[in-house]
Design a protein around this nucleic acid. Structure first.
Lengths: 322, 322
DNA sequence: CCTTGACATGCAAACGCTTGCATGCCAGCG
DNA sequence: CGCTGGCATGCAAGCGTTTGCATGTCAAGG
């Protein structure tokens, strides 16, 4: 708010032209080393900080990237945002965070807002239809996290392999009736998980039933638990850890024993706390995923971001509920 | 990344000057209503989006506010960030989020980075020394959340009143030995909570012991639990819900019964899940707090933000651990 | 019919920075 | 000793907006 020193102040004090100061920061090798040094010293002394907006206006690059997530209070996302910021910081970019609240239209608006003020976009678990996303991808530098949009740059955190072996293990223990409790139905992860459970379950001769929450909250899941008990499921695989805990709570309340009578497997492993019994889950390596995504976004200078499809497999964490 | 329509394109198409287009958006009452309408229509059609950077450069206001938090993965903060974004959105501001990682120096750097690119700053639970914060406050429009910096605008989410009655209730139940398990020691909230527990405890003739985590993580707290058991505490009051759950876990593992032998009270009530037994805690109304803070920040146009000290009391949520 | 305002709009400078081009200097070469 | 070319730096235009001031028009009033 107060007056900041400008490039012109620095130039005046150093007895050089503004362009020289600019070059001292952006193309130092064009200048005599001692000039660069002197300018840096004076800049430091004056507390000069380049004005991002002026720079952006002049170069057409904003020096910021945007990340939009469906729900910032879902513990899966904060570590992802954190990692995005770490990478950005290392490359001296800023980060704009937006939340779509699981609403495709809101998501569209957020993206629209963001696009003109960033050099690139990370769209994490987007909720819009593929069609809209393809359009976005074609007019913006962006990479998707957890959404398999054809022809774009995307990184997918897959639970496929982990679920595959988990179901195998359950089957080996004699489990025959398994229930998948889904999360937000526009979620790619949810689709993938449900599909794997159904397919692999059938392969193993299991009887698989499906339940669905609408928002994936703890309360919803807890209320759903009676249904899994009633259905006689011997194992439930939940969309994520929040849903898993809701189910777990509901099951325990109904008097069934976990894992004795019913096993529970969650997903994400992002909760800051453990519970009793400690939840078995799948570590999805969210931060690793954004890390890849960020590098894809920032290292290819061209436009659009070249198509690439990287799949990272989550890792089974057996604890006490299986 | 592609070319956006500029004010000049719109002007050309509408047969008016660029300044008129600018006024159509910013001071429509200076123009004939039909002119405004025509310009809006054409802008819409051309997909014109004002360039924030140009605007910022020209007006000196960036149209963004910044919020810095110590740890985005602490469930207390995401709802706060969300609310800050909601308010910002309503006033058509953008939000820059930064994380200090509980490190005062990092926090200083983040603030320094942010200052030139925002119109105001929300500093949530800052970790720097008062001195540094005073300096920041004097050179920037900012309001503090959960830090009582003299002479500045600040909103404090206090657990004082809730703890006061909680201790009274415990005392009435015959509790004599109480233990406070602290969180990050640079945290104002931690200081307040500890102080209230000590004072009120003594008032009630209790014996209060103090334990301290360094980062307030679940694992640390769990490892500390043996000490509270060993000390013979009949109640533990924890810095926040994460610490409380760690303690709870540790206590249960040691064989003691909760709340039978030891009661546990947490703080924040921000976890997305419930556990068994359900944790008694204090709802701190974080979102309400930022809401106030944001309005203080955005509604007083002057500089600096006028001093104000608003205290919001948290609300006791008795559940099953007391 | 001329004057006076009010009103609607245009003009041009300014915001702070980047960058293509121009300039001036000096060393080395023929 | 005059050229050439490389190097370090300056000049000025341009990025997209905003806004104080100037301009032109028209209606009402004298």
């Amino acid at each position: 708010m107060s007056q900041f020193a400008t490039i012109i102040d620095v130039a005046g004090r150093a007895g050089v032209s503004p362009s020289t100061v600019s070059r001292a920061f952006n193309h130092p090798r064009l200048l005599r080393p001692e000039t660069v040094q002197r300018i840096h010293d004076i800049a430091q002394e004056l507390g000069y900080i380049p004005n991002r907006h002026a720079k952006a206006l002049s170069t057409g690059r904003t020096g910021a990237i945007g990340i939009v997530v469906p729900d910032i209070t879902n513990p899966f996302f904060p570590p992802i945002i954190r990692q995005a910021q770490r990478v950005s910081e290392a490359m001296s970019y800023g980060v704009l965070v937006a939340e779509s609240d699981n609403d495709p239209e809101r998501e569209a608006r957020q993206i629209e807002q963001l696009v003109p003020q960033v050099d690139g976009l990370i769209l994490a678990s987007p909720r819009q239809a593929d069609e809209a996303l393809v359009r976005t991808a074609s007019s913006t530098r962006c990479v998707f996290l957890n959404r398999d949009v054809q022809g774009t740059a995307r990184v997918l955190l897959s639970s496929g392999s982990a679920l595959h072996t988990a179901l195998g293990d359950l089957s080996a223990e004699g489990v025959v009736r398994v229930c998948y409790v889904g999360g937000p139905h526009r979620s790619w992860s949810n689709g993938e998980r449900q599909e794997v459970v159904v397919q692999r379950g059938h392969e193993l001769g299991m009887e698989v039933s499906l339940l669905q929450t609408t928002n994936g909250t703890y309360g919803e899941a807890r209320d759903l638990a009676v249904n899994v008990v009633r259905a006689g499921a011997q194992a439930v695989i939940a969309f994520d850890d929040v849903v898993a805990h809701g189910i777990l709570d509901g099951i325990l309340a109904s008097g069934a024993r976990v894992p004795g009578e019913i096993r529970v497997l969650g997903c994400d492993d992002a909760l800051p706390i453990q519970t009793h019994p400690r939840l078995s889950t799948i570590d999805m390596h969210g931060p690793l995923g954004v890390d890849r995504a960020m590098h894809m976004l920032l290292e290819a200078p061209g436009y659009p971001v070249p198509e690439e499809r990287v799949v990272l497999q989550g890792q089974l964490q057996y604890r006490e509920t299986t």
